[in-house]
Every structure is written in structure tokens, then in C-alpha cells.
């Protein structure tokens, strides 16, 4: 197996058609080397730098006359607790997350569905490809103003923006993955009478899994960005809207609390995704490790 033509889950991978992603390597396997550090050192590895950064930041911001825009971590933390451990969480944050996940889910289903269709048929693919190349090159945020004209500033606008922005990486990666199904495996499936939906389920989708997951990962990152932008640009509710309001009213600790929450959401969603990916692609990591060991 030649490394440079494979996609590693954990990276954004083959977001483009045509060129196979140059190789990418395991994100979290690096720590598994012989002579791995003990638990104490490991803990130090994890905590030392964050503690240092927060400490230095705290020391600087605690100075009298430190910047107005940089409240101390204590101030941010208390604003965070006041803001988000209250009903605002249900009013501002949950609807945002709902739109984010709805848009992402629609984009995933659309992207994988269309990607399979295009991946399996060379003619349709050749016909649609230039159009897709153009559509996916449009930076999704420019659609926000358009969608506002078309759909107002309600939920459907924001979801449409997320769907339109997220569908391309999923779609194009699925096409690549479906095209790359091993011909020997494909022949094997045919010999044993595996066809139709079973073929799609056990062969095509599974074999394209690594590429599809790479596309979904990129889509998830985009979905968060688009959720925030659509709410910042024009909205009357939502996390993005709240953060902009704080900034405009110079509620600085609250603004920081919003930024921190965004960071936490990004981190949590990405970690959840990694969990799912680990389950779905466990075989792929094993296969790669086995091939590397050879």
C-alpha cells in the first residue's frame, strides 16, 4: 500500500477532486512508541504548557492598568458561569447547535448520496464535474447575504447556508472514495453474488469510509464557522449574535465567555467526531498499522 494515495482519518484529506491527497499520517498514534512515558510524565506533558500559558496570561492581565480588552481568567470564568449556566444556554446556544447539527446532517446525507451516484457512473461524473468544481470553489460565507434575501433571517436561511457550505467536501470525497474501490474486491463481490444495496452497504460505502469521514470532518469544521457567521451577520438570536452583541456593548468578559464557549463547542464536536470515527474506521487504522509494520 503506497502511503501517499491513502487518506488518514483525522485529517481533512482529499477535499479536492482529481488529486489524491498526499499522504497524511495518524494523528493520535504518535504517542504509541516504544519506551512510552509513564503516567506522571504523561500528565506533565498534557498540563504543563496550558498551565504556563494561562499562568502568564493571568499574571499579565492581573496587573493594574492591563488592557481593557483582556480580562483576567477569573473574570472570564465567572462571566462564563453566569451566562451559560442559565437559561441563556437554552435560548441562545441550543438553537444554534440544533441548526448546526441539522445543516451538517442534511449536508452529510446529500453529499454521500450524490457522491455515490457520481462515483459509480463515469458519464454523469464527467458531465457534472466542472459544475461541481465551480460550485465548491464559491466561499460559502458569500451566500449568507444572498440567503437572507431569499429566506429572511430565520432558521431555514442559516441551515441552507450550512448545507450549501458543507456539502462539497463530503460530496467530492465520497466520489473519490467510491471511485477508488479496489477492483479485486469489486470482482470478488460480483463473484459471490453481492449486488445492489448490499454491495453499496458492505462494499462501496465501507471501502470509501476513510475518504467519506475525512470529508465529513472538514464539513463539520465548516459547519461551525458557517453557523457563527450566519448568526453574526444578521440574526436576532444565537451564539454568534450574542457574542457580537457583547462586543458592541463592550461587555468584554461576556464576549470572552462567548468566545471560550465557541472554542469548547469546537473542541467537543471534534472530539465526538473522533470517537465516532474511531469506531467506524477502527479497521482502517489497524490495516494501516499492519501495512506499516511490514
Amino acid at each position: 500500500m503506497s502511503r501517499p494515495t491513502t487518506v488518514e482519518p483525522g485529517t481533512t484529506g482529499a477535499a479536492g477532486t482529481g488529486s489524491p491527497p498526499a499522504g497524511t499520517a495518524p494523528a493520535r498514534r504518535t504517542r504509541r512508541r516504544p519506551g512510552a512515558p509513564g503516567p506522571g510524565l504523561r500528565l506533565l506533558h498534557v498540563l504543563a504548557l496550558p498551565a504556563l500559558i494561562v499562568g502568564v496570561y493571568w499574571a499579565v492581565t492581573a496587573q493594574p492598568g492591563a488592557g481593557f480588552y483582556t480580562p483576567t481568567p477569573a473574570a472570564i470564568a465567572s462571566a462564563f458561569a453566569d451566562l451559560w449556566f442559565s437559561e441563556r444556554f437554552f435560548v441562545d446556544v441550543l438553537p444554534s447547535l440544533g441548526r448546526l447539527l441539522t445543516g451538517f446532517a442534511i449536508a452529510a446525507v446529500l453529499g454521500v448520496g450524490l457522491g455515490v451516484l457520481l462515483g459509480l457512473d463515469a458519464r454523469v461524473r464527467a458531465t457534472i464535474e466542472p459544475v461541481l468544481e465551480f460550485l465548491r470553489a464559491i466561499p460559502p460565507p458569500v451566500l449568507v447575504p444572498l440567503m437572507i434575501m431569499l429566506a429572511g433571517i430565520d432558521d431555514s436561511m442559516k441551515i441552507m447556508v450550512i448545507v450549501f457550505g458543507c456539502v462539497w467536501p463530503v460530496l467530492l470525497n465520497t466520489v473519490e472514495g467510491v471511485r477508488a474501490v479496489d477492483p479485486v474486491l469489486s470482482d470478488t463481490a460480483r463473484c459471490y453474488g453481492v449486488s445492489g444495496l448490499t454491495r453499496l452497504r458492505v462494499l462501496v460505502l465501507r471501502s470509501a469510509g476513510p475518504q467519506i469521514m475525512a470529508g465529513l470532518r472538514l464539513a463539520l469544521a465548516l459547519a461551525i464557522i458557517l453557523m457563527v457567521i450566519s448568526e453574526m451577520f444578521a440574526s436576532s438570536s444565537g451564539l454568534g449574535f450574542a457574542i457580537v452583541q457583547f462586543q458592541r456593548t463592550f461587555a468584554i468578559p461576556e464576549m470572552w465567555a462567548g468566545m471560550v464557549l465557541l472554542g469548547v463547542i469546537g473542541f467537543v464536536l471534534s472530539s465526538l467526531f473522533e470517537l465516532v470515527e474511531g469506531r467506524v474506521l477502527g479497521w482502517y487504522r489497524g490495516l494501516r498499522a499492519a501495512n506499516r509494520g511490514e
Binding site: L185, D187, R190, C191, Y192, V202, R206, W283, Y284, L287
Partner: peptide
């Protein structure tokens, strides 16, 4: 005319003819 039900094939490329996710 198509892969018949009464025939099984073992390919040379064992690594590629098995479903790695199963």
C-alpha cells in the same frame, strides 16, 4: 454471461480480495 452462482474464485491478491472492515 455473468458471475454464476455455482462458481467461487480465489484471487492472487488475498489482501485485496478480503473485506478489511469485516
Amino acid at each position: 454471461l455473468a458471475p454464476p452462482p455455482g462458481m467461487a474464485v480465489v484471487f492472487q491478491e488475498y489482501g485485496r480480495s478480503l473485506f478489511a472492515w469485516m
